[in-house]
């Protein structure tokens, strides 16, 4: 997918705030039609990176949109090749239809065509019935649909998505993610997508940039990055348990040469009779699947994926002893 003129090229990007460097990205590219997810915990700098890339924040370094350097005097024109959807839908205090039309007006679209395109896109996003309502009067999920309609209506060649579904309920989020995937594929729009949700990144993006403290930790194909963290920090953010040499020996994990730490995904660990004894510390809820966190005799914590119903069992209460095992073949050895 990453062929031809890149939609976005970033080189030596630095963003400073209060005399502190909050973003430092040596290189990042989004190919034409490609979706790249910027994945990181809260405070990693995802939004700041996105705002800088969207030419909405002053930054040092080079940013090119479709190979045109984003010099100060061309930034408005370049922004008109892009669109941005924010976590806060930020609808203007006018009708839903006008919210879409005003964006089209800024792109020089004539009045008659504005109306047609606004209605077309509100219809495609399933909010045509809200066209006459005030932007401030619609629900969070509806506002995000309007925001997406506003973004797609201007036919952007590059879309910036800053955790667009973070503020909506789980079911709406799942639906919107699916719809967004379809739209991106149908329109062939390149996208840079900030999220802290692994499954969103996996579903939408071809490639993932793991961002931590404003710096990329790991960049690669989405499935590869999410399955094979390369560092302790990346592993921890991705929900892997990081086990030291003592834990590895305890669990019978044989390290590859030169490395001593293993990352274990919750799905690679299980409760099994005859396993290594560990003490339950707490349970964590997830959607459908939860995690049981146990402490090994070596002091490391191991997360074990479990169905939510199983976690309600009294044998999994904090302080209980459980036998655990780890699938050797699924352990990821960490070089750093």
């Amino acid at each position: 997918m990453n062929t031809g003129t890149p939609a976005l090229t970033i080189r030596a990007l630095r963003v400073r705030r209060a005399a502190r460097e909050v973003i430092e990205v040596p290189h990042l590219e989004v190919g034409a039609g490609e979706t790249v997810a910027v994945l990181g915990p809260n405070g990693a700098g995802k939004s700041t990176l996105l705002l800088a890339a969207a030419l909405l924040l002053p930054a040092d370094g080079e940013i090119s949109v479709f190979s045109e350097a984003a010099r100060r005097n061309v930034q408005v024109r370049l922004r008109r090749q892009t669109a941005t959807v924010f976590q806060d839908a930020a609808l203007l205090d006018m009708t839903v239809r006008q919210n879409v039309e005003v964006a089209l007006a800024m792109h020089g679209v004539g009045k008659a065509e504005r109306r047609v395109r606004a209605e077309e896109w509100l219809g495609r996003l399933g909010v045509a019935h809200l066209a006459g309502q005030r932007g401030h009067a619609v629900s969070g999920g509806e506002a995000q649909r309007v925001s997406l309609a506003r973004a797609f209506a201007v036919r952007p060649r590059l879309l910036f998505l800053d955790e667009p579904f973070a503020g909506v309920d789980h079911a709406t989020r799942a639906t919107l993610t699916g719809e967004l995937r379809t739209l991106l594929a149908a329109e062939g729009t390149a996208a840079l997508f900030a999220t802290h949700d692994h499954s969103e990144a996996l579903l939408l993006a071809e490639r993932v940039v793991l961002l931590d403290l404003g710096r990329p930790l790991q960049v690669g194909l989405a499935a590869e990055v999410l399955a094979r963290p390369e560092s302790v920090r990346a592993a921890r953010f991705l929900g892997f348990s990081v086990l030291g040499p003592a834990s590895c020996a305890l669990l019978g994990l044989r390290p590859v040469e030169g490395v001593s730490h293993a990352a274990v995904a919750p799905e690679a660990a299980r409760l099994e009779a005859g396993g290594v004894p560990a003490v339950v510390r707490r349970v964590e809820a997830g959607s459908g699947v939860g995690r049981l966190l146990v402490e090994l005799a070596s002091g490391d914590t191991l997360a074990i994926g479990q169905p939510i119903e199983a976690l309600r069992d009294s044998s999994m209460a904090a302080g209980c002893e459980v036998p655990v095992m780890v699938d050797q073949a699924r352990a990821v050895w960490l070089a750093r």
Partner: peptide, 21 residues
């Protein structure tokens, strides 16, 4: 809301359009 300022500029507003909105 700060997001509103970003949103208006992200829509491709030039200086006058930004001030007007």
């Amino acid at each position: 809301p700060p997001a509103l300022h970003f949103q208006i500029r992200a829509m491709g507003a030039d200086r006058m359009q930004y001030l007007w909105l």
